[in-house]
């Protein structure tokens, strides 16, 4: 495997211009999508099969009483332990040599299990192709020596692209700087590869706690449940099985055979 690539989205540099959102649509030729009234600038509310980068607009008063408008360009996290990848029954979802998670559109059969299995609500179903869609980490571009379209379009370098280890170092320095400047809630999300989901290959710098952005504070890999749930199922199976055997073996109840 090649050295792991990553995207580092530094929300402290984001100006909510949505160039990334549009660049992604353009590069990936994602077509027209009807917007909805969200009451603010954000559109759409969720990732969709045509929106792989989604800029979130979060209005939150600061402790000082002034308003803060938190802007965050959200994207598939390319989790090291990816719920979607684990869930996929066809092998359509795979990990590339760069560590990114991609959906092979020629294999996906549209069971949509991955849609429910992503801890971040990333994967979306496309009715026309009948397949699941999400950020490809610009698979075509990274295999040709280019960075992702969204990172390329970002005017403020809020989205940085590079080798994961290097980016993490840079990100950690940035958090320190921000903290020194008085952003006491500045924190990295998903940078730690010993943290949740084995670390995210698209990780973030947040200015507030993750839940402010709608992100799970401590996302769990859904497949973690399989072992316990299966054990309990086996228990249930044993009880039912034994129960049935006992019910049929028992003497004397009921009428004649």
């Amino acid at each position: 495997m090649a050295r792991t690539l990553a995207m580092f989205t530094d929300t402290s540099l984001c100006i909510g211009c949505r160039a990334c959102q549009v660049a992604c649509k353009q590069w990936n030729e994602l077509g027209l999508e009807l917007p909805e009234w969200t009451g603010t600038y954000q559109n759409h509310t969720h990732f969709t099969d045509k929106t792989f980068r989604l800029v979130r607009f979060i209005e939150e008063p600061k402790p000082s009483g002034d308003l803060a408008w938190l802007l965050m360009s959200d994207v598939c996290k390319h989790c090291a332990d990816a719920g979607c990848l684990n869930a996929c029954p066809t092998g359509a979802i795979y990990r590339t040599q760069f560590g990114t998670v991609n959906i092979n559109q020629d294999v996906c059969n549209g069971c949509r299990y991955c849609v429910s299995a992503c801890p971040f609500g990333v994967v979306s179903f496309n009715e026309n192709t009948g397949t699941a869609k999400k950020c490809t980490f610009c698979n075509d571009r990274i295999h040709n020596g280019l960075g992702p379209a969204c990172a390329k379009a970002c005017p403020t370098e809020s989205i940085q692209f590079g080798f994961r280890d290097e980016l993490v170092g840079r990100a950690q320095k940035r958090v320190e700087t921000l903290k020194a400047m008085g952003f006491k809630d500045a924190q990295l999300y998903g940078a730690d590869s010993s943290g949740f989901l084995g670390g995210l290959n698209a990780f973030f710098l947040l200015l507030s706690k993750p839940s402010t952005y709608g992100l799970p504070e401590n996302p769990k890999l859904p497949q973690k449940n399989i072992f316990v749930d299966s054990l309990l199922s086996i228990g249930s199976a044993l009880l039912v099985g034994i129960g049935a055997l006992v019910a049929f073996r028992q003497r004397g109840t009921g009428g004649e055979a």
């Binding site: 949505r18 959102q21 549009v22 649509k25 353009q26 994602l30 077509g31 027209l32 999508e33 009807l34 917007p35 909805e36 009234w37 969200t38 600038y41 559109n43």
Partner: peptide, 9 residues
């Protein structure tokens, strides 16, 4: 479309 859809109306 890519730009127009960014604001509802």
């Amino acid at each position: 479309p890519m730009l127009a859809e960014l604001h509802y109306s």
